[in-house]
Design a protein around this nucleic acid. Sequence first.
DNA 1: GTGAAAGCGCTAACAG
DNA 2: CTGTTAGCGCTTTCAC
Lengths: 348, 348
Amino acid sequence: MNKKRHSLKDIARELNVSVTTVSFVLNGKGKEKKISDEVIKKIQDYTRKINYRPNLVAQSLRTGKTKILVFMVEDISNYFFSKIARIIEDIAYKEDYKVLFCSNENNDDRSRELINLFYERQVDGFIIIPSPGIKDSIQMLINNNIPVVLFDRYFDDLDTNYVVIDNENSTHHGTQHLLSRGYRNIGFITIDVDQIQMKGRLDGYLNAITENKLKSYVLKIPYSETGSKNGKKQIQQFLQKNPDLDAVFFSTNYLTQIGLEVLREDHPRKLQEMGIITFDDNDLFKIYSPSISAVAQPLKKIGKELMKIMMEMLQTDKGIKSTRHVVLDTKLIPRDSSLPKEEKLMHS
Amino acid sequence: MNKKRHSLKDIARELNVSVTTVSFVLNGKGKEKKISDEVIKKIQDYTRKINYRPNLVAQSLRTGKTKILVFMVEDISNYFFSKIARIIEDIAYKEDYKVLFCSNENNDDRSRELINLFYERQVDGFIIIPSPGIKDSIQMLINNNIPVVLFDRYFDDLDTNYVVIDNENSTHHGTQHLLSRGYRNIGFITIDVDQIQMKGRLDGYLNAITENKLKSYVLKIPYSETGSKNGKKQIQQFLQKNPDLDAVFFSTNYLTQIGLEVLREDHPRKLQEMGIITFDDNDLFKIYSPSISAVAQPLKKIGKELMKIMMEMLQTDKGIKSTRHVVLDTKLIPRDSSLPKEEKLMHS
DNA sequence: GTGAAAGCGCTAACAG
DNA sequence: CTGTTAGCGCTTTCAC
């Protein structure tokens, strides 16, 4: 086996042709450039024989394109993000793009660092879930004519492409669902963060509650504490302080996980009796006992829309065309955890 | 805002110094090369002002290093893989490496394609869960002196670095656990694939069963069907055909998911009464009802060991030193699903 | 102390 | 039809 990589020059020398000829042939421009069949064949045979692999770094330097996209989310190991990642990956590979995944932990410094890093590395485009304070970095990318699509959330005062869901409507609908099933004291457990998607989710809940002249119960947990014991404790206290709650709405899937854990340990009875809805579905919620009703985001559609916008930008050379705003609907999947209240009480 | 990227040349011209000087200063070699403080300051101030970002592609072409690692798994959206991905990512970033994640679907063609792709792109190292038939591609990387670490499985007749767990021992132990809890007819549901880790898992189970002179019940499902209705159907049939089973051992987490779904839908009673163990833990198994006993892989340790070997190879220039073989222990986490058989029957 | 220049491997305009 | 050549942006040797 050959230890050294072959270069165009090596091949050219070996075959007594010029680098250009080899380059043309390998790029499929042999016919177009009217290179003789004989030479074409010679080159193809030889390169196949030595298993020639072009140096894409050199190619990138020359063309200015890396064929790499960045997909930046809060945490790639989170169900929602990793599922979308997988969809994006598949579409991208079909379009001959590779995808670099990274997690920013919803942290501005880390986000900025990552964006700079990949900017230096000349990636062709960014698909980003922005952390709260990185408007400047996003702006920088846009100024430098680099395709960016945000998703899950965006900045009100920054004109970017984005793909989001109708958060407000979704939680409004979910809350209505609980109300229609007879629940009256509905708690809302969410993340304490000043981001548009979370504000939307809270608003949807609050509106539904006020429209029905009911009392709202809101618990806000700092994002940084969702991984720690502290988050769990806050939910425990919230449930204890509000014993009259007959339903809870969790605004993200990791909160649901913590919440279920608390309910299971401290209030096994409530776990069966309370109405429960989670934002973001998970395969496992379906097979939980009780199965958990969920507001499911359209993962495939989100992935597709993101890539559609991205490919469009990538293809229209540097069109500073209008930005695309896509707002998708979610789907409420009623399961056992939000069965009518009386029914639940009967069973338990 | 400036539309164009700045290059070293631009800076040099602007500041009336040479490219070399700028390069030295930016690489922190100013002092070493005895460049005057004045010039150093001038360059630093200016580059900061225009927010100069070096072109890392050019740098890579020149140095031959990309500072990118590839992490290839079956499916990045799977819990086990995405958790490890996250750990690897964190370690890598600290070492100033970026990580490209990709999913090979345990498919040889896709694996080969991906490996070639990244090889062309000059990535510095590969961490791979190999699909069954890509020994040749792995060999190619090794021949070309590219650091490779396999994990989860390896090839018996290929001398590579790898990090795996003691599969045989783990399932043996798990099966023993079920036996000690009074279960006698234990089924083993696994993937039909000729790979070392799955063979180990099956062997561990079979050995435990034979040692105790019991009957084995094995269901092998093709990997390709685990995502489809077909896989579900096979489990359904398996359970129907073997009504005397009092316990099941699932050999991977996605099989467990399907299995739980089947049990929940078709045999809610069995779900409570049967002994259940899963290979690969998941946060949600802990809060399931019943909580599911699991053979947990040491995710952090796996990630750390992988990166330790990788960094070692990356640093020792081209040392063809001996290959590293790391075999880690798993941890059996007994939960409610494997409570003593009598206890379970009493409760239900 | 600083600069000129070669070269990493590739593309493509231009020349013949 | 094929070859020469100028870069892409950077690092680094060698020269002054």
